[in-house]
Each structure stands twice: as C-alpha cells, then as structure tokens.
Amino acid sequence: MSASLAAPARLTRVRRYLLHNLGLNLALALLVVVVALYCGVYFAQQGRFPGNFELTSTVDNTMPLVLAAIAQTLVVLTRGIDLSIGGMMDLTNALAAAHMKAGIGSMLGWSALILAVGAGLGLVNGLLVAYGRLQPILVTLATLSIFQGLAIRVLPDPGGAIPQAYTDALVNTSAPWALVYVVALALLWLGFRRSALGVALFAVGNDERAARANGIDVIRTKLAAYMMGGVFAALAGLVLAATATSGDATTGDGFTLRSVVAVVLGGVSLFGGRGSAIGAMAGAFITMMIVNVLFFTAIDPLYQSFFEGLFLVVVVVLGAVIGRRFRRG
C-alpha cells in the first residue's frame, strides 16, 4: 500500500535498551558506584575488603526495605503513593510477635494469616482510592494513623517473641542466603511484568482515561495494586520481626519514607507508569550502602540524615539532567 514512508533511522538495540529503561539503568549504575565506594572506604579503614559477614548482614538488614520498596513501587506505578506502608509493617510485625508460637502449624498459620491481613489492609486503601476517588496521599496518611493505632493495641510494649525456628527459616545470618530471595523477587517481577495484570498496571499509570477506553478495568487494577502492596508490606513486617526476633509496634514507622526514597532512587516515576521494582530494590540497597559508607568515612553519625537528604536531591536532579541529555542524543 501507499503508506510506506521512508523508514526513519531506527535506534540501535543497545541504545534503545538503555533509553527505554533509563531509570532502572541509572539506579543499577548508581548501585555499582556506591558499592565500589563502600568497598573503597571499607578498605581504607580496615585494610581489607568486606567479606562474607559484611555481605550477609547488609543483605539481611536491607531485606525489609527491599520488600517495602516493592510494595511502594506497585502503588506508585498506578500514580498513587502509599504512606501507610510503615503502619502495615507495624501491625503485621506486632501480630507476629504477639501471637506466633514455636511449632510449624502456628508459624505457617500465622504467616498466612498475617499476609492475608496485609492484603486486607491494602484492600481498604484501594477501595478508598478507587471507589471513594480520594487522593492516595491523604487516604494512606489517614490509614497510616489507624494502622499504627491498631499495632499499638496488638502489642502495647515492645517485646513478644518470634520463634527461633522462624528466624532461622527466614534469615540465615551466616551466609548471604537472602540474595536468593532478591533474585527470586526480581524473577517474580519480570514474570508479573508480562502478565495481564502487570500490563494493566502500567497502562493505568500511564493514562487512566486511555486505559479505560482500551477496556482495562481501572478499579480492579488499582485494587490489585494496593492489595499486592499490602501483602509485600506484611512480608516486610514479618521479615523485620524475624530479623529482630521480637516485635515492636513502631519499628515499621521509618519505612514509609524510606520506601519512597528507595523507589525514587530506583528510577520509578512518582507520576506513575514508568519504572521497575528491580530498580526500587536497587534503590533500597543504595540507601543502605550510603549508611554504610557514612559509617566507614567516620562522619559524625548525627549528620547522617543531612547526607542522605543531600544525596537524594543530587541524584534526582542529576538523573533528570542525564535523562534529558540522553534523549536529545
């Protein structure tokens, strides 16, 4: 037919891959840089490179944030934000510490129940956002307060106990076993990205109106995103409890904002529809590495937040500048 215009120059494979996954690639590159930086300052301090112990403890300590960052990613991709992640982690953490007993039945049963609770909490957020048509930031700010209150009700004082066997099953402190989880989560994400729901999630985040016009069930997609976010937040709460071997109804509070930071560092757009949970996972590791670097550069720990904040701004601004340059050619 007559429609064939002169074919424009097509992008090379490599260039296209870099360009289309810019946020993810910048996050991975940044991760490499901060890991190298960490190894450098570690060597300068200790006279050797970090070994198995450092790797294991770093990965173990980052796991809760990795899971929280995935939860945040799922919601942010729909052009929302979930400020209640910290509250969901508080509540699930408290539930585990208050109720879980040694014995396979109790551990499995409560784990399943707690994940279901996470899904339920996410569903509440989702219903308010999707059916109530309220702003995600306000809805989740309100539910954050509610979840925090419930957590304190469940576990008024820090304590409770997590069965040793549960900790052993989830957290291996002698080898970087958790890296397997990281890889598994990455694979899970790649699979999800290819599922109908994954495509719908991106479509809704790209343009809600267009998604509807294309026959996508926008409400169901959002509900699913918030529910899955709840499940991952609950998982984060469980891992946090397993790591600490006891519970604390406020231990998750800090994770709300840290999950947002991880998502932003991971190149996920807060305007929805762009990004990857793998980037957010990298973002979680980046934040953790920055803390480690600060520790080994003997900077007064009181200044830690200063450097974290500065780092966040610089990365976001540089990322935008690099993106613009790259696109222009």
């Binding site: 991106f202 343009d207 016009a213």
Partner: peptide, 20 residues
C-alpha cells in the same frame, strides 16, 4: 478511535498495538 488519542506514552508501539 476517539478524538483524544488513547495510547500509552511510556509503552512500546508493540505493547500498545497488541494490548490484551
């Protein structure tokens, strides 16, 4: 085909074309 286009800007042409 509505007057306001309903394509997804950050998704590839192929993903848009074969959506669903």
């Amino acid at each position: 085909v509505f007057q306001e286009l309903t394509l997804f800007p950050a998704m590839s042409v192929a993903e848009n074309l074969l959506l669903g």
